[in-house]
Design a protein around this nucleic acid. Structure first.
Length: 771
RNA sequence: GCCCUCGUGGCGGAAUGGCAGACGCGCCAGCUUUAGGAGCUGGUCCCGAAAGGGGUAGAGGUUCAAAUCCUCUCGAGGGCACCA
């Protein structure tokens, strides 16, 4: 055997061998024990992967490799989410056309993904920009349309002035564009929406039955934002104003009404509002403000009273004034509130600013209020409908045709895909229209219904629609077969383990759950939660800061693969911390891992011994590594392997223990373990399809264990005992120790020892009476 | 403002009621004809010569026993946010 571990040669050799022997391609039709191990596919918004991607993929792969060795048919597909604004923005930045850009990056991303040695099922890969993929994204739109879940409506929507497109609520994080961080502005536009709000309750309830990171569940619950309350009517002369409140019981303290600036009643000419000019000025000023400006102004309340009209508090019969103020939002509830300054901080601040009465009235039971005022119980959600139109080029055209005679007509399914044409000037226009609106050969068409001249929808759909169903595509992706085949869906879905970034808590993960539920209701799927188990991996940071191109601290994995090998990089990343924690990348640690792997290599050039000094340790390692991988605590699994290697170097190792060691290391370092498995241990089949070792609990526990001896809670000595030694033996051993004797000189003396607490295998604590 | 995490050596972290600091990085000393960012051995929480004592952001509490559970304070990170 070679003296030095030549990772370059070995890693290349095995990557090619695995591909040729197809050991990572499960039989999709007849799996014995299917296990769908999914990771979020990368979105190319740069030339290639950064080390954070490699971190997530390696973690997922180590878990998948473990499951495979446990006898599961592991399906670990990969693809690229290269359709959409993220890739298009990158193309714009470097002055390339998205189509050429996609071709070039595809090659590089796949090269890098191969280089890290993951057990990917390459045959099943998908790219979201492939017409054979997005024909089904368009098909999905049609299914929602058919079920009344896709509708075109006018609404105040988020517009990113830099990306020149509208955005969904989820993508305008804190008033900033999710892609570029620019302040979004509100625009009143007619757009396509998916009615995700129809599913609010089911999206909430479904969280109870799935095994997800708790913080992701909480983020989804907060985002859906269910509030239960009541709809109450406050009559004015001619009309009545509906308000939503979660505190109907405070109605006696409602001393005025506030309308949002966008409230339709304000523009109603039949109301005799005396100060119309003043109101108009206020409303227009409020509408001009961005979300950010409204936020920054924060607690300073502004508003104007509607002079000449009043409302009646239906519980007290009192006449109360009506105000318009921008602290009330048009998009929530009814866009109108009953203000209760005695119970609500914001109402109090407003009342104090404008000297309005603050009535500290009694509470009435909600039931009584509803009866008395004829109010209705009502539930409101923070969740808004999913705005899916994008005024961009690089995405699936929305499959709709507008006909003067027939109106809005869906494209027949047989005509899909509506291919995205190559157009030279793909740049966003900023005119509320996609660049496709300038391409007559694209938008001019005939009506599928009446055959007359018609016009295509020129907006494309949100990139998050592409990724909302890709995991459903993988099992049927081979050779462009139709998706959602009953047979394969039943075998492989829902996904057994999904690992991905926490930043998708309310984006991708919410959309994917929604789309799954819709497909379930349409009879295409038997399940309605897509991911049985989800874990969010942590972030890899550099020098305490998130990696970003602007900071110039993005780590390209290529140089580390070249310098130390994929196995060393994998081990280093997995050793940093538990997968869910992430870690700070430092290259000094990489050398340590290369050293560790070299020591593993060297061990096999020494002769195996026949004794088994390390038997207990081997069994302990099997137990610990198995449990730690299940819990995604790869760092402690690897440390256990280091402990074992240290012991092997000190005491020698048997052939059997070396075999076990390699198997335990295989999920983390697939190449070197495969090489040694074949070359040193002379095995024929792959280590990655070998059986995961089992441990003997009795041997792992060992014949003796060292436990601490405390006197009055202070550690004074240690004694070696059988793990299950009876208390009398433990007590005798402890009291025989001379260091213990120092504190308990004559244990037989009457009453010197008040109590002994003994926890077998853990501790013995001698409590003296003087305590 | 509300909700959720989390504070342990020089660093990443381990221990989640039972011997604090596993494992690794870094550092220190030594070995090896070693001028390389190589390899090997030993050491490495603080005070102390030792015996011993102290120590997990801070203060209190529960317990035979607390990094771990409870209360408050301080600090960091994340989610939501004029959401009625």
């Amino acid at each position: 055997m070679e003296k030095l571990y030549d990772f370059k040669e070995i890693e290349k050799k095995w990557q090619e061998s695995w591909r040729a022997s197809r050991i990572y391609e499960p039989n999709l039709d007849k799996p014995r024990k299917p296990f769908y191990n999914l990771m979020m596919f990368p979105y190319p918004s740069a030339e290639g992967l950064h080390v954070g991607n490699v971190y997530a993929f390696t973690g997922s792969d180590a878990y998948g490799r473990y499951q495979r060795m446990r006898g599961n048919d592991v399906f670990e597909p990969i693809g690229l989410d290269g359709f959409g604004i993220h890739s298009e923005n990158y193309a714009l930045k470097i002055g390339a056309h998205p189509i050429e850009q996609a071709e070039r990056t595809e090659e590089n991303f796949y090269r890098q993904l191969r280089a890290i040695g993951n057990g990917f099922a390459w045959d099943a890969r998908v790219e979201t920009y492939d017409p054979e993929y997005y024909r089904w994204t368009q098909w999905l739109f049609l299914q929602l349309f058919k079920r009344g879940l896709a509708e075109r409506k006018k609404a105040a929507v988020n517009w990113c002035p830099s990306c020149k497109t509208v955005l969904a609520d989820e993508q305008a994080e804190g008033g900033e564009c999710e892609r570029c961080g620019t302040q979004v502005v509100k625009k009143e536009l007619e757009q396509w929406f998916f009615k995700i709000t129809d599913y609010a309750d089911r999206l909430l309830d479904g969280l109870q039955g799935i095994d997800w990171s708790e913080r992701v569940k909480i983020a989804q619950r907060n985002w859906i934002g269910k509030s239960e309350g009541a709809l109450l009517e406050f009559p004015t002369g001619q009309f009545s104003i509906k308000v939503f409140t979660t505190r109907p019981d405070t109605i006696l303290g409602a001393t005025y009404i506030v309308l949002a600036p966008e409230h339709p009643l304000i523009e109603n000419q039949e109301l005799r509002i005396k100060n119309q000019g003043e109101i108009k000025n206020y409303v227009e000023a409020a509408k001009r403000k961005t979300e950010q400006e409204r936020l920054v102004e924060g607690k300073v309340k502004t508003g104007v009273e509607l002079k000449g009209i009043t409302a009646i508090n239906p519980a007290t019969g009192t006449e109360i004034p009506i105000w318009v103020a921008d602290y009330v939002l048009a998009g929530y509830g009814t866009g109108a509130i009953m203000a209760v300054p005695a119970h609500d901080e914001r109402d109090r601040a407003f009342a104090e600013t404008f000297d309005l009465p603050i009535s500290d009235a009694e509470l009435l039971p909600a039931r009584e209020v509803l009866r008395k005022t004829h109010g209705l119980r009502k539930t409101h959600y923070h969740l808004r409908d999913w705005l899916i139109s994008r005024q961009r080029y690089w995405g699936p055209p929305i499959p709709i045709v507008y006909c003067d005679a027939c109106g809005t007509v869906p494209v027949p399914e047989k005509d899909l895909p509506i291919k995205l044409p190559y157009i030279k000037d793909f740049r966003p226009t900023g005119t509320n229209e996609s660049p496709l609106a300038a391409d007559a050969s694209f938008y001019k068409t005939t009506c599928p219904r009446c055959g007359h001249e018609a016009r295509r929808e020129t907006d494309v759909s949100d990139t998050f629609l592409d990724s909302a169903w890709y995991f459903l595509r993988y099992p049927d992706a081979h050779n462009g077969a139709e998706p959602f085949s009953k047979k394969r869906m039943k075998k492989w879905l829902p996904v057994n383990m999904y690992i991905g970034g926490a930043e998708h808590s309310v984006l991708h993960l919410l959309y994917a759950r929604f789309i799954t539920k819709v497909l379930h209701d349409a009879g295409h799927l038997r399940f309605d939660e897509p991911f049985t188990k989800f874990r969010a991996h942590g972030l890899i940071i550099k020098d305490g800061a998130k990696m970003s191109k602007s900071k110039g601290n993005v780590i390209n994995p290529d140089e580390y693969v070249a310098l130390y090998g994929a196995d060393a990089l994998r081990l280093y990343l997995m050793f940093l911390a538990p997968l869910e924690d992430g870690g700070d990348f430092r290259d000094s640690g990489m050398r340590g891992m290369a050293k560790f792997l070299n020591r593993v290599w060297q061990m096999f050039s020494r002769d195996a011994v026949s004794g088994s000094e390390t038997e207990k340790l081997v069994h302990q390692a099997v137990k610990k590594v198995s449990e730690d991988i299940e819990a995604l605590k790869f760092n402690t699994a690897i440390s256990q392997l280091m402990i074992l290697l240290n012991a092997f170097e000190k005491n020698g190792s048997t052939r059997e223990s070396r075999e076990t060691f390699l198997k335990l290391l295989a999920p983390f370092a697939p190449h070197i373990t495969e090489e040694l498995w074949h070359m040193a241990l002379r095995n024929e089949a792959s280590i990655h399809t070998s059986a995961w070792p089992i441990y003997d609990a009795r041997l792992a526990a060992g014949e003796t264990v060292e436990i601490g001896v405390q006197v009055d809670g202070k550690l004074r000595a240690t004694v070696t005992l059988a793990p299950n030694a009876p208390e009398n033996d433990a007590r005798a051993a402890a009291l025989a120790d001379e260091r213990v004797r120092k504190y308990v000189p004559d244990p037989s003396a009457d009453g010197r020892i008040a109590r002994v607490i003994y926890v077998p295998g853990r501790i013995i604590n001698v409590i003296t009476k003087t305590q």
